[in-house]
Design a protein around this nucleic acid. Sequence first.
DNA 1: TTGTACGCGTTATCAT
DNA 2: ATGATAACGCGTACAA
Lengths: 336, 336
Amino acid sequence: MTIYDISEKAGVSIATVSRVLNGSARVSPGTRKKVLEVIEACGYAPNASARGMGLRSLRTIGILCADSSDLFLAKAVYYLEQELTANGYESLLCCTGYHQEVRRSYMDLILSKKVDSIILVGSNFIGSTADENQYIREASAQVPIMLLNAACDAPNVYSILCDDAASMYEAATAMLDAGIRDILYLYNSLSYSGRKKLDGFAAAMRDHGVNGYEQLIYRYSGDPQQMRAVTNFVADAAVHSPAFHGVIASEDPLAIGAMKYAAQRGIQIPRDLSVIGYNNSMLASCCTPELTSVDNRLEAQCHQLVQTLLSVLGGEEMPRKSVFSGKLIRRGSTAF
Amino acid sequence: MTIYDISEKAGVSIATVSRVLNGSARVSPGTRKKVLEVIEACGYAPNASARGMGLRSLRTIGILCADSSDLFLAKAVYYLEQELTANGYESLLCCTGYHQEVRRSYMDLILSKKVDSIILVGSNFIGSTADENQYIREASAQVPIMLLNAACDAPNVYSILCDDAASMYEAATAMLDAGIRDILYLYNSLSYSGRKKLDGFAAAMRDHGVNGYEQLIYRYSGDPQQMRAVTNFVADAAVHSPAFHGVIASEDPLAIGAMKYAAQRGIQIPRDLSVIGYNNSMLASCCTPELTSVDNRLEAQCHQLVQTLLSVLGGEEMPRKSVFSGKLIRRGSTAF
DNA sequence: TTGTACGCGTTATCAT
DNA sequence: ATGATAACGCGTACAA
């Protein structure tokens, strides 16, 4: 069933059918009605590949993320897909894993599919050196690149993110103000966002005159979804460290690990230990007591990202960087 | 940069370039080498749309799921995408939500993109009447339809699933054998899989001569990710029901809700209450004590699904239904 | 082994 | 308002 079949059945030319299909104003109401009827009756739908050739666009956006089963990334992918679909775009999903080299080839692969743009979900796509981000600049020569929860200053690259440094500063300050100065900081990766969080934490500690806080900073480099490993890691860290009465984690799963460690040791939360997570994911309300966590406005970020993208594709000039403010959501794992 | 540019630079015809591109054997090593060099130098990649027109395939698989941020579905989507990418296929992701009517239009939409197949992830795509599944039969006239965690008997429809009835029967039996006969059964939806689980539970109760078990069967019809609502629901159910010393849930989040209810009431797990979840998701190891849960072999299912799909696309005859056995993973929420 | 020429289904540019 | 027709980039019979 092609546009030729429809044009024949409707007694018009393919040009007219195409116009109806694309909502052109230059079609008489009668003709339009007739064509639409035939289309409906035949259950005809235009061929996407052919359309892509003519339009030089498949109305498809490539979504790259490290792992779409990660709680945070999964939410982001979901919001993005919803918003894109609502605006008539398809989502080509690609999970790259966490290895930098693999990323490059995935970018090339997805670019060859003639996507209209690429969204990089999560900040682990951004390195700390210009060199590491070269592949992004190269890709941005072809299509606009959208960054969710990360930033990179380059032409045709648009960054949507939360001010993680400020949010973490706020979280740490809340804990410090409650009189807790021995804080274990757990993080997982030094992605763009990971560095910002760490910076924010360190700044808060310094500004409040805490000495030696660095000794309580730990990096867990395993899979955060493996709760047992996280728990063991925290337990191990506790053995080799000065005492601590607060835990701040760069991701909710790490905070959950700390809570499980506490449960094992019989340490009462929040009486003996206060815990703050990050992302305000579902996990925060799955544990007992529930986890205080930083909400980084993921849904708003995704909305803004797609709106920005649509405008850019429409040829509008748009801000290259949109920064949201996070918010500390207080729950049972903290008394303040 | 088109195939014409390459052919010109390499001093051959586009047919030869095309042959090199598609790995045809009918090219002399020298020519092949030269063409590849030019392709490399130019960073040329064939246009997917044009290729799709010629090949009548974009090597793209449509993945439909209700909500890719659901823990279970997200894992499935991840495994599927990985496996498909490894085999040179793209994944077009589409989240339909839980409304039947919306589904139909999404199917049509994705079919018009000329995908090579559609994977329906999760059993809520399958209704209990033949009429409800008509849209699947219609779609299967165009491309093979793959069902993950559900079954539908129709030509060109392939079902990969876990024997949820048997798994649930086993779980309930384990609890009954431990002497717990007053069991609260929590479920969320009567999808294909949801019905099987309920059937399995009911069968176990009957076979063990438990009377009046129906009074302790509750359906929570809200969003399972809203833990507070789930917890309240369980608390409410407890007020209006006979006493119970066991909980079996059709999904981990519901089981977590039961555990949170218990924590609120000061009910000790597993001493006073045993809890079993389903899916063996990350949540099972996030709570304290950890949750005993049924593992339904999601990764194996996804692997089998893609292998079956590839074979079907290759023209092979394949089994129309592949059934895996689930396994009860025992953790701290049960003493048996 | 290699090249020519056509078809794929659509959009867009012209005429009319 | 409508129709004829040329791209669009690639795969592939068919011919050489």
